[in-house]
């Protein structure tokens, strides 16, 4: 019988297999990169809001405490979004004609809440309670990033399960004195100081990492 395959026939399958291997490897690497990328985790992606509220101005430059607006953070699962009245506490007197604040005034006049768009969001199967984290001294900045440096609100950390578990398995370096939870800049704390404080705080509060990564802690 004559030859079935052309002289190049042995090359093409080899090239094909080689390209296939390269493609699969590239796909795996791309996939691995993608799930950690800002595109998927939303880190640093600014979310459109009805009013371009600047945390940089209010929390950073004016130094207003986080809890002035997010009043529920110490006692409730949700930190709480401020009611329109909270904005108007000051803005009834200053920047009263600013076009930027028109939606706020309209909200107050109509009695309809502003519709802010969620920035920091956990999936519904994850149970999260702000109050316990705050009262044990997990500072805001650990999860939300340098909010005081964000002109427009964006997600500061990837809210992946790995992000939660990293801290739950080794909370010590992340803990701070509970009376300073809203402090943003901790650059004067060395790693040793943080670890030392964290160790003592864990002893004082009976924090046991071996229980903190039980499934039922977050998935209830």
């Amino acid at each position: 019988m004559p030859q079935i395959f052309t002289p190049s026939a042995d090359t093409w399958p080899r090239v094909g297999v080689g390209l296939g291997i390269v493609a699969v490897t590239a796909a795996i690497l791309l996939g691995a990169g993608l799930v950690q990328s800002a595109y998927v985790t939303s880190v640093d992606w600014v979310v459109d809001q009805p009013v371009p509220f600047s945390h940089l101005h209010h929390a950073g430059e004016l130094g207003i405490d986080c809890r002035y607006c997010h009043a529920g953070v110490e006692s409730a699962p949700n930190a709480g979004l401020p009611a329109t009245e909270v904005c108007m506490t000051c803005h009834s007197q200053i920047w009263t004609g600013a076009p930027m604040l028109a939606p706020v005034r309209e909200s107050l006049a109509k009695g309809e809440p502003l519709r802010w768009n969620r920035v920091a969001r956990l999936p519904d199967y994850a149970y999260f309670d702000h109050s316990i984290h705050v009262s044990r001294g997990v500072p805001c900045v650990e999860c939300h990033g340098r909010v005081d440096e964000m002109p427009l609100m964006k997600r500061g950390e990837p809210f992946t399960m790995a992000f939660c578990l990293d801290c739950h398995r080794d909370p010590a370096p992340h803990l701070r004195p509970p009376d300073q939870v809203t402090r943003m800049d901790w650059s004067d704390w060395t790693a040793e100081r943080a670890a030392d404080y964290g160790r003592r705080a864990m002893e004082a509060h009976h924090i046991e990492p071996s229980r903190l990564d039980d499934c039922g802690v977050c998935h209830r």
């Binding site: 691995a32 799930v35 950690q36 990837p158 992946t160 399960m161 790995a162 578990l165 990293d166």
Partner: peptide, 13 residues
């Protein structure tokens, strides 16, 4: 179903 396979993931499980 591929969660049954061990692979590095952002859940660290």
């Amino acid at each position: 179903f591929y969660w049954m396979a061990p692979y590095p993931n952002t859940m660290t499980v």
